[in-house]
């Protein structure tokens, strides 16, 4: 195992092909980051900061399956 070389995922056009992207790595990215617009602009239908509430719910609900992909010092 120690001689195994690291390889990028096997996809001819990785930027266009989401198939095969590991879910846990994807969640690291779609959930924790990209917060360019401030929280109060990421609004729910009722003008509440939905995203933050949802993330907290997610953290508690799937933590067994996807243990804490969020950075301690991350945007949360």
């Amino acid at each position: 195992m120690t001689t195994r070389q690291p390889v990028p995922w096997d996809n001819p056009e990785p930027l266009t092909g989401p198939i095969g992207v590991p879910l846990v790595d994807l969640l690291d990215r779609v959930m924790a980051t990209g917060v360019v617009i401030s929280g109060d602009l990421i609004i729910a239908i009722a003008d509440v900061p939905l995203i933050r509430l949802s993330l907290h719910a997610l953290l508690s609900s799937v933590s067994e399956r996807v243990p804490a992909p969020w950075a301690d010092g991350g945007p949360l």
Binding site: P18, I45, L50
Partner: peptide, 27 residues
């Protein structure tokens, strides 16, 4: 997550792209 990523990735083939977090909604 995959649906969001598919759109982000497709858009990014056209140039620099800022992905927004999952669940970014406006009225």
């Amino acid at each position: 997550a995959r649906a969001h990523h598919a759109v982000v990735s497709a858009a990014a083939t056209c140039g620099p792209t800022v992905p927004l977090p999952l669940a970014t909604l406006y009225r």
